[in-house]
Simulated scan of single mutants.
Amino acid sequence: MTDFGCLRDSLDGLSVGDALGAQFFVPGTTFDDLLDGTAPAGSWPWTDDTEMASVLAAQLIQDGAVDQDRLARAFAERFEPYRGYGGGAVVILRRIREGEPWRDVARDAFGGQGSMGNGAAMRVAPLGALHAGDARTAALEAMRSAEVTHAHAEGILGAVAVAVAAAEAAWARLVRNRPEPRELLDAVAGYLVDGGVLTGVRRARRLLGASVAEAAYELGNGSQVLAQDTVPFALWVAATRLDDYPAAIRACVEAGGDVDTTGAIVGGIVAAYTGRAGIPPLWLAQREPLPHLENAA
């Protein structure tokens, strides 16, 4: 089923995780700022994670499905480099903005191998949440959303993994039946093929009793900005803290690395389960306002 309420809740969770995670790149902000119910002061600007997720969400609200040509144009037209886009993404989006076909641009990236970065995964949770209980459609639509910028299989499979997790989380919320961590990870693994992302998800399943530090050491924390270095840890966090949004985001901060991206992925999945009510109101208030989705695409 499609559920736009779940999509919007997931986008709120994604954007708060992104904006809060980004605060930990600001000098003087430490993990202690999240303890005892506190949070970094001031307004929290969001990054490219939220910008691209908002564009994708807007198209889904308008059309109900991914139109790759329109999505590529919207990504290219709306991207603001100061939001924290990586160098590879800037090149891809500028070339598309200048009129080059997105298929050619995506294939040309990184010496012709295509991007295996975490960018497609970071933006896709609301798409998965939209397809609550329909993981197959979530996986197929995630592939389509990823392909406009990521031609490498790992980058695409990272998006599939996150979308399936969000679809399962949203369905669990609707039927009021939280999956066990191993069940959620097994559901994700069922939609992947052999590669780094699947290997990481399988390893995450074996680490369900581990500490955050151990899981981040074994799975990666996004510091390489690759799907296989980011998605397995994010899924481990979401699976083990699915009903506790603040604890899930704290785990991302504790792990370090690409905190805004792990926070975005985890926040989008967990909020698909908890709903907007699971996000601390103070955190929502401090997040930079989102663009109007009806106009974002």
Rank of each mutant, 00 (worst) to 15 (best):
I265D: 07
V259W: 11
W236M: 11
R241E: 03
I96D: 02
A247F: 01
T149Y: 03
P101Y: 00
D229N: 12
E180Y: 12
R97Y: 01
A151T: 00
G195L: 00
W283D: 06
G222H: 06
L235G: 02
N221W: 07
D194L: 11
E80G: 09
A172W: 04
G114R: 01
W283F: 03
G28V: 11
A89G: 13
P289N: 09
E294Y: 09
L11R: 08
P280L: 08
A167T: 07
A53F: 11
N118G: 01
P27G: 08
D134Y: 09
A153N: 06
H152Q: 06
A57S: 15
G267H: 07
A227H: 02
G190W: 05
T240Q: 09
G114Q: 00
G37H: 02
L157I: 00
Q228I: 05
D69M: 04
T149V: 07
L71M: 04
R173E: 09
Q228M: 13
A264T: 05
I265Y: 09
G13S: 12
V55I: 15
A216E: 04
G37V: 07
A151Q: 00
L192T: 00
Y85C: 01
P280T: 12
I249K: 01
D244S: 02
D63C: 07
W102D: 00
R103Y: 04
D134R: 13
A153V: 12
T137D: 08
A187G: 15
H131E: 11
P232W: 03
A271T: 10
A41E: 14
A285Q: 13
V237L: 06
R136V: 14
A169V: 10
V162H: 08
V105D: 00
L293I: 05
L235Q: 02
L174H: 12
G84T: 04
L14F: 10
D9T: 06
L290T: 06
V55H: 10
G114F: 00
A72D: 03
N177A: 15
H292R: 15
E51Y: 05
M116P: 11
P45F: 05
P291H: 06
M1P: 13
R107H: 08
V162C: 07
L14A: 08
G278T: 10
R182L: 14
D104A: 06
R144C: 07
A285R: 15
T29R: 15
E98W: 00
G209H: 07
A121E: 04
A109I: 00
A142T: 10
N118A: 05
E51R: 11
E183W: 12
A161S: 05
G21P: 01
A204T: 13
G37Q: 04
E180G: 08
E141Q: 15
V253E: 02
T262S: 03
E294T: 10
L174E: 13
I156H: 01
W46V: 02
S211G: 11
